[in-house]
Amino acid sequence: MPLMSNRAHRFHAPMVVYFDAIRRAGSIREAARRLNVASSAVNRQLLKLEAELGTPLFERLPTGLKLTHAGATFARHAIEVLQDAERVRSELEAMQGLRSGHVEIAAVEALTSDLLPSVLTRLRELYPRITVGVTVLGSAAISQAIVSGDADIGIAFSIDRTLDLRQLSLWPFQLGATMRPDHPLANYQKLSLGTCQAHSLILPKADLSIRQQLHRALGKLPQGMVETSSVELAKQLTLRGLGISFQTRIGIERELESGTLVHIPITKPVTLKADLGVYVRSARNPPIAVHALVELFSKQVDQMAASESR
């Protein structure tokens, strides 16, 4: 993951900055490379910090550095102060009319096909000084990325709520069977999972939230012709006629518009829905740049959700 904005780092002592870099990189050498400073300088600041706190912050292992219990406690402090510095810097610049800043997004793969590119294009048009980093993860990993400070916001389906996460927005989307228009089931208005089972299936792997929903609805799932954690691969295999895949309309917008794929809601044994949510860390007040991006994203998804309900 990219480090926090260098300008945000200027608000705080090098010890905190270097500690956070080591935590993220897992080694002093890699942290120094990312910070573009000498390894000796990073090591010196770490030793100084450990001396001031009176306790080791990392275990020195052959495979790299691992946080001690004290290090994990200090890491929570470092994440908060550095993220707060980014927020303050963003607000100060906003007061001057600059509307700049940096936003780290952790998002599920389905968003990268059309939805997220559209939002980021609009963001660039309105706020050209805001920079963005995007990491594609599964829903479960997105929660950890937010809590650890590696992501400012997370956008995912069906995230388990915890006290560490604050939900900013939520939209329900219907899960459906996706197939080519020449598939034998393509003319159905709705489908049951049982009917789909009689055909070749492209199934999501366990790290995708859709897999959990299919499992809860059907119990033991049949063997898929292909099982993948990649939404893009599932889409491409479906386009090639290898079988039926399962997802929401998000990620196949262009294919549905062009008619190269159809999406049929699953209604039996139960109607399946996936909740798309935007999340931040509970203990954090996000900077203005994050709010600007979330506002644009919400407007785009509101339109999609309204279209689906019609």
Rank of each mutant, 00 (worst) to 15 (best):
R87D: 04
R87L: 03
R89G: 12
R89I: 09
S90P: 04
S90V: 03
E91T: 03
E91G: 02
E91A: 09
L92N: 10
L92R: 13
E93C: 05
E93L: 12
E93P: 00
E93K: 10
G97W: 03
G97P: 00
L98F: 09
L98T: 13
L98Y: 12
L98W: 10
R99K: 13
R99W: 11
S100D: 02
S100R: 05
G101R: 01
G101A: 07
H102E: 04
H102D: 01
E104F: 15
I105Y: 10
I105D: 05
A106F: 10
A106Y: 06
A107W: 03
E109W: 05
E109S: 03
A110V: 11
T112K: 11
T112A: 13
S113R: 13
D114G: 01
L115S: 05
L116Y: 09
P117D: 04
S118M: 06
S118C: 07
V119M: 00
V119W: 01
V119Y: 01
L120S: 08
R124T: 07
E125R: 11
Y127D: 03
Y127R: 06
P128C: 10
R129D: 06
R129T: 08
I130L: 02
V132D: 04
V132S: 05
V134F: 13
V134M: 12
T135G: 08
T135R: 12
T135Y: 05
V136T: 08
V136A: 00
L137G: 02
G138T: 11
G138Q: 01
S139T: 13
A140F: 07
A141Q: 15
A141F: 11
I142R: 02
I142Y: 11
S143F: 00
S143L: 04
S143E: 09
Q144G: 05
A145E: 10
A145I: 10
A145N: 11
I146A: 02
I146H: 02
I146D: 00
V147W: 01
V147H: 00
G149L: 02
D150S: 12
D150T: 08
A151R: 03
A151Q: 07
A151E: 07
A151D: 08
A151L: 07
D152G: 07
D152T: 08
D152S: 12
D152I: 08
I153R: 00
G154Y: 10
I155Q: 04
I155P: 02
F157C: 02
F157P: 00
D160C: 14
D160L: 14
D160V: 15
R161W: 12
R161G: 07
T162Y: 04
T162M: 01
L163S: 14
D164K: 04
D164A: 11
D164V: 00
D164S: 10
L165M: 13
L165E: 05
Q167T: 09
Q167D: 02
S169C: 15
W171H: 14
W171I: 08
P172A: 09
F173L: 03
Q174F: 11
Q174S: 14
Q174Y: 10
L175I: 14
L175F: 13
L175M: 14
L175N: 13
L175T: 10
G176L: 09
A177D: 04
A177M: 06
A177P: 07
A177K: 03
T178C: 15
T178G: 06
M179L: 15
M179G: 08
R180Q: 09
R180S: 06
P181W: 04
D182R: 00
H183I: 06
